[in-house]
Amino acid sequence: MDRLAFDIAHLLAGSLVLASFMLLYQDRLYAMLNLFALQALLLALSVAWQAHIQGASHLYVTAGIALLFKAILIPLALHRMIERLGIHREVENVVGIGLTMLAGMALVALSMVVMLRVTAEADPLAREDLAFALAVVLLGLLMMVTRRNAVSQVIGFMSMENGLILAATGAKGMPLVVEISVAFSILVALVVVGIFLFRIRERFDTVDIRALDSFRGERR
């Protein structure tokens, strides 16, 4: 049972990283949204599995929140936003896909090395979980850095937050209040970002953030 529990947790966390890579590779907005929903679903499964093996019933609530908000509500909201904004479906990358993927692999390797080193005494389950979580966070950040489109930056941000939730649930004893407040702050961030997207669009007829820079009168 123990061995199996570990393997399933490992599998779910690893598939989160895989979903991050797919997000990194994808350059169409709707597909990105779907992938993000998939990642959130995997997160919810992973958290539920953690709840099961840790015997911590409050984690089921976290899993529920992840499922409801991140796998259903946020992708739907973003979907509607894209439709109403009628934005260009393609996402422009700053760096080429191949290079981004290579950088992503290096980041995963880095997070493995760091986490396995610094958590030498920790519970192996938590160790693996933390390493994957750091990888998801770094990949989310990489996505924010390499994309020019505001919507894809929002998705990068949300995927980063998925990594944080994964790390938080992997460690035993994280109180529920923290997770609920994180979930709500993400929701608030979504609302704010949504409003801003509409405002940017109204002003500049695009959600390409380069328009913002040129409005600020800066050179690139």
């Binding site: 950040l141 953030i209 913002l212 820079d213």
Partner: peptide
């Protein structure tokens, strides 16, 4: 700097610390 550059700086700082 642009927003993306700030993010890149944060990212690079994080990666180099790691």
């Amino acid at each position: 700097l642009t927003i993306r550059r700030y993010l890149s700086l944060v990212f690079l700082a994080l990666v180099s610390l790691l």
